[in-house]
Design a protein around this nucleic acid. Sequence first.
DNA 1: AATGCCTTCAACCGCGTTCAG
DNA 2: TCTGAACGCGGTTGAAGGCAT
Length: 332
Amino acid sequence: MGRAPCCDKANVKKGPWSPEEDLILKQFIEKRGTGGNWISLPHRAGLKRCGKSCRLRWLNYLRPNIKHGEFSDDEDRIICTLYSSIGSRWSIIAAQLPGRTDNDIKNYWNTKLKKKLLISSSTNNSGTSATILVPSTFPDHHHHHTNINLFSHHHSPYQVSAPSSTYYDQKPVLMNSSNHLNNNNNTTTYSPPNLMSLLSDNQSQHSCSSSDNGSTSNQVSYGTSTTTHAFVGSTQEHNMAYHEGFYNFNITSGVEEDHDEVHKSSSIPTPSGGGVSHSYDPWNERQNGLWSDHQNHQQLEEIKQLVSSNPNHNSGWNFFMADAQEKFMMYY
DNA sequence: AATGCCTTCAACCGCGTTCAG
DNA sequence: TCTGAACGCGGTTGAAGGCAT
């Protein structure tokens, strides 16, 4: 038994949107909003379109501040880094790129960036090992995880407890002749991939200081201060965290900060839930599916720093899911 | 100029997730 | 707690334009 269709297929128009339809939809939403119901919106607006189609058209094309056209090097870098870390979670990646839609990024990746990387990889690795982009599956033999002290493994290879969430099922990594993944009892050692190095040298030259001797540290220096980054959210939140922006907190002490404090102190707004009491209004916080420019800017800058800080060696992301709170961390 | 192939990207489809009743 | 409607996501499709022959 199939799912009931979301609309009367016989009475809805399909295919490309006309300028007239665009105008009707745009004016209606700007004037009345979505009303929290996309299904009824086309009827209310007088459009012979499926609600899903309207939603897509608005989100991907009509809403304000949508950015079309060429992707910048910074955007390339962010996409590559996030793809190498989390795979084809386009909406999450899009959340880090103000004005870009998941569809946009997905198309861009599939049509251009992937090829660019493949070309770069064959160039950069000529005479050495071939670097290929492959989806990897973390071993999934533990649906429950043993707490690991991430902070006791500050040096590469990172310790990774295999996450169980389907979020990671297709996590791609760059593999070269030296295998990045090794199973070791209950933990997987993971030498983070160096996807960014596949981008052009020009793109890889960035100012944040980091060792270029191949050594790995989770500590990233910005000027005279040393900062260690991580992103954290509880499992119930990690979906939201992904959607609404990354959390960050300082782990230089090796002690995880209180979540409430993390949220309070974070420059990135976080959703409510998981015991976090402050109110969260997604519409105010992220109108039209995007953070405000200021918020976007802050997030973007943080990610830029992360991405650009360590492009040439084993910088990377570390994942783990702790059992008790099933925390998800991206550990840099 | 005509044809066929390739690339791009807007739009669709189906399914998992969320949420209200 | 259960159920169904709606949402949101990622994969796929297909029309349109560009390019080579």
